[in-house]
Amino acid sequence: MTPSQISQFLRDCIVNDASDSGINADAFYGLYVSWCSLNRRVPVPDQAFRTALRLAGLRPEKTGKGWTFPSLRMTGPAATDYILNSSAQTPADPT
């Protein structure tokens, strides 16, 4: 993943929002995979993606919910695609 690719992904998909609790690291990668799919790119493995984020200056923090990138929020078509596909894979509550 080149610096220009990570920059484009971040411009297209991420908003800095101090009022937001942040994006879980796994969801961040899922958003990236959705972005790749919509832009006809082959996603890099998760570890390479996390390295690219670190090189771009983004560092996750350990929270009670795992690793989170604080004050970041998803936006754009890839966010919609990721959210719709994530909820479609969640099994329905049997109650």
Rank of each mutant, 00 (worst) to 15 (best):
R59E: 13
S37L: 09
D12V: 01
P94Y: 12
V42K: 15
I6R: 05
N16M: 07
D81V: 00
T90A: 06
I14H: 00
R73L: 14
A88P: 02
S71K: 15
G66A: 07
W67A: 11
V42Y: 12
G22A: 04
I6C: 06
T51Q: 15
S7N: 13
R50D: 13
R41H: 07
P3V: 05
V44I: 14
K65C: 06
A88S: 08
Q8M: 08
W35Q: 03
L38V: 03
R50N: 11
R40G: 05
R59A: 14
P77G: 06
R11P: 00
G64D: 09
Q5L: 13
I14W: 02
P70T: 13
N24S: 13
N39V: 03
T51V: 15
G30L: 01
T63P: 01
A56K: 06
Q5E: 14
P60Q: 04
P94K: 15
D12H: 07
C13P: 03
A18Q: 13
Q5N: 15
A25R: 12
V42F: 10
R50C: 05
L31M: 04
N24C: 11
G22P: 00
D26Y: 07
I23E: 02
A92S: 10
T75H: 09
L10Q: 10
S19N: 08
W35H: 00
T80K: 14
V44D: 08
Y82L: 08
R50L: 10
